[in-house]
C-alpha cells in the first residue's frame, strides 16, 4: 500500500490523505479520472466498489468518493474530490468514469437524480432511476425539506406524536424517584 501511495504522490498532486479508517486521498476534480485510470490499469485496483456523494452545504461543496478495490492484494482505497455545489436548477458537473467501469453509469444516474450532479457523456444519465420523473429539488440535497414535502404531498394521518427519548425514558423508568439531575 505504501508503494502505491508513493507512486500516486509522485504522479498526482495529493491535497489530503487520511489513514484512520482505510486509505482516503483527496485530489483535485480534474485529476480524478486520470488517477482512477492509473489505479485500475497500473496498480491493479480493478474493482469499483461504489461512487457516492456528500453534500457539504456549509462549504458549498459536493464531496464525491470513489471506492476502488484490488482483489488480488485485497487492498481498498478511496479517492475523494470536492466539486462546487451548484444552486438548483443549475447542476454541478463532473467527469464520467463509465469508460473505466461500465457499472459506474448506474451510480452516476443515481447521483444525477438524487443530488443533481451531471456527468456528461455517461450513457442513460438523463433517464429516471428510482424517482420517476422527479421535477423538484433533488431530494438528497440538504436544503430539501423532506418532512415538509411529505406532509404536503402524502396526506399524513393525524395522531402521530413524538416524545423526547431522554425525558420520556426518565419519566418511565424513574417515576418514583422523582426527577433526576
Amino acid at each position: 500500500m505504501e508503494t502505491v501511495l508513493k507512486n500516486v504522490r509522485d504522479r498526482y498532486n495529493v491535497l489530503h490523505e487520511t489513514h484512520t479508517h482505510g486509505v482516503f486521498i483527496t485530489v483535485s476534480p480534474n485529476d480524478v479520472i486520470g488517477l482512477l485510470a492509473y489505479l485500475k490499469n497500473v496498480e491493479g485496483f480493478t474493482h469499483l466498489v461504489l461512487l457516492t456523494a456528500v453534500d457539504w452545504i456549509e462549504e458549498n461543496q459536493f464531496q464525491l468518493t470513489w471506492l476502488v478495490n484490488n482483489p488480488v492484494l485485497k487492498q481498498e482505497m478511496g479517492i475523494r474530490a470536492f466539486i462546487e455545489r451548484s444552486v438548483w436548477p443549475e447542476e454541478s458537473v463532473m467527469d464520467s468514469a463509465h469508460h473505466l467501469w461500465p457499472a459506474a453509469k448506474t451510480y452516476q444516474r443515481e447521483l444525477h437524480e438524487m443530488f443533481g450532479i451531471d456527468f456528461p457523456d455517461s450513457p442513460e444519465v438523463n433517464e429516471p432511476l428510482i424517482l420517476e420523473y422527479w421535477d423538484q429539488l433533488p431530494p438528497y440535497r440538504r436544503d430539501f425539506d423532506t418532512k415538509k414535502y411529505s406532509e404536503e404531498t402524502y396526506f399524513p394521518r393525524e395522531g402521530r406524536y413524538t416524545r423526547d427519548p431522554k425525558t420520556h425514558m426518565e419519566a418511565k423508568l424513574y417515576a418514583r424517584e422523582g426527577k433526576k439531575q
Binding site: I130, L131, P139, F144, T146, K147, Y149, S150, E151, Y154, F155, P156, R157, G159, R160
Partner: peptide, 19 residues
C-alpha cells in the same frame, strides 16, 4: 401503510394507503 411508519417523513413513501 397506516401512517407512514418509520418512513413518515420520507420524500418518496406514501403515508396513508387508503387515500
Amino acid at each position: 401503510t397506516i401512517n407512514g411508519g418509520m418512513y413518515f417523513d420520507s420524500y418518496n413513501t406514501i403515508n396513508r394507503l387508503d387515500h
